[in-house]
């Protein structure tokens, strides 16, 4: 019988990355490693999640009155009151969010590139995934979608470039003007569903990447992710629906944003 195998050359696996390097400061060494990057991704993801949650809860003031949400916006600028310069604490928070976002994106891009080097040849036959779900398989796409949406969102409601009726300091009416445009309302809803899909895997993944693991609560981690996603998506998507349905409507535009509507209207007359 013929010998089944005869191999003249033995292949050798080539490293997919440069050595991590000894002797560098430990935070640098830590961030260079993929496990460290995942840790950073989890921590920054938690920071961004905290922002999204607070942002959504704050925006619920939309349902109280124009004065309520506009005063809330003003209070954010006035965080710390007279103890610190005006808007300084807000800028500190914004700085933290921007740093978290940059690190989150940087680790995502570098790890994605590492992973494609680690699996250069795809399976030629179709794969049959068992555990990987839609959310986990589309993290990079939902992430990119959210990033681009974020730019529009800032241009629309923070800087005002994408909102012709933008009035600085009147978030209530800015938001109503914006969401009265049907494409914007749809875009906002779609982006928030993408955010929900991203968080469905992300929130669970945080526990795993940070090594928060205990048989007592392991089963609850997926449930927590689903709960967080439900709260954020329902809360956020309700805003464009409320505007489109006319539940939230323009209130005395082009008057003092933080005065009660009747008084503001009267003084404008």
């Amino acid at each position: 019988m013929a010998q089944a195998t005869s191999t003249k050359e033995r292949p050798a696996a080539q490293p997919v990355r440069k050595p991590l390097g000894r002797g560098v400061a430990w935070p640098v060494a830590f961030y260079r490693s993929a496990v460290g990057k995942k840790w950073v991704m989890a921590v920054t993801g938690l920071m961004l999640l905290g922002f999204v949650l607070v942002h959504m809860i704050g925006n619920l003031k939309l349902y109280l009155s124009r004065q309520d949400i506009n005063l809330y916006g003003e209070a954010l600028r006035d965080l710390g009151g007279h103890l610190v310069p005006h808007t300084s604490l807000l800028w500190l928070l914004r700085g933290g969010i921007v740093v978290a976002l940059v690190l989150h994106l940087h680790s995502a891009v570098t790890l994605t590139r590492l992973n494609s080097r680690a699996r250069p040849d795809k399976y030629q036959a179709p794969r049959d995934y068992i555990a990987a779900n839609f959310a986990s398989r589309t993290m990079r796409y939902s992430g990119v979608l959210i990033a681009f949406y974020l730019l529009f969102h800032l241009a629309d409601l923070t800087w005002g470039n994408a909102n012709p009726d933008f009035v600085r300091g009147d978030p209530y009416n800015n938001l109503v003007y914006s969401f009265q445009r049907v494409p914007v309302a749809i875009l906002y809803a779609v982006a928030n569903v993408a955010l929900g899909v991203h968080l469905l895997h992300g929130v669970w993944s945080v526990f795993q990447s940070l090594g928060i693991n205990n048989p007592r609560f392991n089963r609850a981690r997926r449930l927590l992710a689903q709960g967080v996603v439900a709260v954020i998506v329902v809360g956020n998507v309700s805003f464009p629906i409320a505007v489109q349905a006319g539940i939230v409507d323009l209130e005395c535009p082009h008057t003092d944003p933080v005065a009660p509507c009747e008084a503001a209207a009267a003084s404008a007359r």
Partner: peptide
Amino acid sequence: VEEMESFFGSCTNHGE
């Protein structure tokens, strides 16, 4: 972990 990272990709918690 460092030896692993020289040759392999990173974990994205799919569970496959």
